[in-house]
Nucleic acid binder design. Structure first.
Length: 287
DNA sequence: CGTTACCTGAAA
DNA sequence: TTTCAGGTAACG
């Protein structure tokens, strides 16, 4: 659930909180061992104890908590994970799966109802990352990058946006929102976008993600920040989880369909199925 | 490509 | 009781 804006919000909060702080220990709660993908908890505890956190960065939906010796704790929140910065002894949060004990009695807690989230300790951040596309809010996210990623693909544009190998950090909320802003039908084949449509989509992706960051992320169900507070972006969405409501722009009823196995929300009037351009070859049966 | 599995709780 | 969930990896 946490997508780029939510993870970026956490990163910004975490940096001043944990930067320079000494680690006194690390442990994983019983039954949650699977959140560690590589080494066991005892080994991580041994490697972390006595070290200090330095900077916190983000790549796509991954957080990198860098240590003073160059190692990196790589965290992915998946669907329901969250990081909480709390004083030791402050109300035990249910579903706490792992705890970093810090100096001055503080704790960084990893809380995750569904246990899909992951924590990795690696020498270099890339070791813990799958192949990821460009960062959408950086200079490496170019029109050319979109073109290369989508060229020749019959896959629905919605599915292509969710594929982290194309662009890193977009999830279900911001994919639907970016497509609405672009007036593109979620089921349009990714490779069918014309240059003007790709340009519009590029700008819409950046705008919707920037808005998300500006509002501290979206809290529809589980997402909360490092203090347990909710984001505000859910009050600004145009289509996401607004099935049956009137479109802000045209009043048509927002619809919910399933694309690529994911709930997809769109305005059927603002985001119509594009008419096939007339062309002799388009009379071939659809396959 | 689409579908299923991974988990667990909240909402319908 | 059933359905649904902001993500991804592993299927077929």
């Amino acid at each position: 659930m946490p997508e780029l804006p939510e993870v970026e919000t956490v990163r910004r909060q975490l940096q001043p909180l944990v930067g320079g702080r000494r680690i006194l220990g690390f442990r994983v709660m019983p039954g949650a061992e699977r959140l560690l993908r590589g080494r066991p908890a005892a080994e991580i505890d041994a490697l972390l104890t006595g070290r200090a956190f330095a900077t916190v960065n983000r790549r796509g939906k991954y957080l990198g908590l860098h240590l003073d010796d160059g190692q990196v704790v790589v965290v992915h929140l998946r669907m329901t994970g969250s990081l909480r910065f709390r004083q030791r002894g402050f109300e035990d949060e249910p579903f706490t799966r792992a705890v970093f004990d810090l100096d001055h009695g503080d704790q960084l807690r990893f809380v995750d109802v569904r246990k899909f989230g992951t924590i990795d300790l690696v020498e270099r951040m890339e070791e813990a990352l799958p192949k990821l596309g460009p960062e959408p809010l950086s200079d490496e996210f170019t029109l050319d990058a979109i073109w290369h990623a989508f060229r020749g693909r019959h896959q629905p544009i919605k599915a292509a946006l969710l594929d982290q190998r194309n662009i890193a950090g977009i999830g279900n909320i911001y994919a639907d929102e970016a497509l609405f802003l672009s007036r593109l039908n979620p089921e349009a084949p990714a490779g069918s976008l014309r240059p003007s449509e790709r340009r519009t989509l590029h700008a819409a992706i950046q705008r919707t993600l920037q808005d998300g960051v500006a509002h501290g992320g979206a809290s529809f169900r589980d997402y909360t920040d490092v203090d347990g507070a909710e984001g505000e972006q859910q009050y600004f969405v145009r289509v996401f989880r607004r099935t049956g409501e009137p479109c802000d722009d045209c009043g048509a009823t927002i619809r919910r369909i399933v694309v690529g196995g994911r709930a997809t929300h769109f305005c059927p009037k603002c985001q119509p199925v594009r008419q096939r351009t007339r062309k002799v070859t388009s009379n071939r049966p659809k396959r």
